[in-house]
Design a protein around this nucleic acid. Structure first.
Lengths: 228, 228
DNA sequence: CTATTCAAGCACAGTTTATGCCAAGACGGA
DNA sequence: TCCGTCTTGGCATAAACTGTGCTTGAATAG
């Protein structure tokens, strides 16, 4: 639905490499964030919530391995894709990279094209489940046509309402934390008041007129069809 | 570790390689199916529906590339993981492999260990299953849904109660000191009275209505299912 | 075996917090 | 400008959380 390029964070202490990768990724339509050491990478990752992170191993102030391990220990980054990039090509490093929870481990030198194709391969797989039509019981959400149907009845939702519903319905039963919702629907950097989410939820509940969004106090919301 | 039991199809025309890979994957707990050419690979893929397929490029009767392309064109295999294995290490082949829809492209010679770690990396992400669900006997704690089930019965816990239970249940039998619990559930800086923990424990015991939290006087609490 | 002691259990009540809901303003496109 | 959408702040309410004071019970010492 959205040609909104995925957000990629690159961390490397060599400016040349950062430049080259940034250029190539930007051309491909990605949004690129750059970090020049481990600590900066961690900080930017938390702040920007990128979809994919490329980490060089040899970096000052925390190596790529360390950063990877730290990120993976946080639930927020359990689903973030991580590629480790390194000059080392020995088996032990390779294994260690995957042990740290990396999704791919690439040895330098590497052509930008190959790296991009690996990035695409990872993203393709992770977001493949973005089915454009979600069906749950009598409810049908068509992301492409921006349409919600219930019992064959068309229901008209505003943009934010729709995106919010689509997000919740994309994983029925799963609880979405408030800040997850903010990140996904509004974007990581946007700041909106606490009440905004509630109001949209209320409108969805009103319009759908069925009990399908459960609130988990202190945590977030989840989509759930009549589990009477 | 985990009950993997994933089904893997290997296709290569060199019997030696088949043997080596089969051995190593079997040791890791995978179920292995072997094919010695492209057509056989296709046939076995359809028949056995493996979770992951490893394809050598150089094979008689359809190359790995061709097999990959054919598989990807069928909805049944849209989600099947595919690794392409090859002696060619040039950029063009690399790119072509990903273009065909492969999830990973590995150049020979490759150590079985590295291949296995790549296999695991792919499977880990695709079947990103249940480290978010803790199951102990009839009790089931789903962190993703923020839900506790006992005997199929849903039990609703408040946030702190849930986090507390999840913590204790994360290591059954292990005793958690009071200050450990405070750190994990409340946060290191927050200061709350001594009785607070007791109260929450009591509520959990009430709601679950089973004897699963043992108190170790003077030390802390531990989770333990009625080893009557 | 009993008394002592102190951690933990317990009920209740006060406080805090999250969310629901409303109404009104801001924004933006036709 | 009008109209639908988005956002915000205030207020009410229900739920969650925490502290108090008392009771219970288990370990220990005598």
């Amino acid at each position: 639905m959205e040609p909104k390029g995925k957000k990629i964070l690159i961390a490397d202490d060599e400016p040349d490499i950062l430049e080259i990768l940034e250029y190539n990724l930007t051309v491909e339509g990605f949004t690129v964030i750059k970090a020049k050491d481990g600590d900066e990478a961690l900080h930017l990752a938390k702040q920007q919530q990128p979809d994919l992170i490329i980490l060089d191993v040899m970096m000052p102030r925390k190596t790529g391995m360390e950063v990877c391990q730290i990120l993976r220990s946080q639930p927020d980054f359990a689903n973030t894709l991580i590629i480790i990039l390194t000059a080392l090509n020995d088996e032990a490093s390779h294994l260690k990279g995957f042990e740290m929870g990396a999704d791919d481990y690439v040895s330098k030198p590497i052509s930008p094209k190959v790296l991009i194709s690996r990035v695409n391969a990872l993203l393709r797989r992770s977001f493949r489940s973005d089915d454009s039509i979600i069906k749950i019981g009598d409810l049908q959400i068509d992301k492409e046509q921006f349409l919600v149907k219930y019992h064959g009845q068309d229901i008209i939702l505003a943009k934010k309402e729709f995106e919010l519903l689509a997000l919740l319905a994309s994983k029925p039963g799963r609880v979405f934390l408030r800040h997850e919702i903010l990140n996904q629907v509004w974007g990581a950097d946007v700041i909106v008041g606490d009440r905004t989410i509630d109001v949209h939820i209320r409108k969805i509940r009103q319009k759908l007129n069925i009990d399908c969004i459960t609130t988990v106090k202190g945590v977030g919301y989840k989509f759930e069809l009549g589990t009477t």
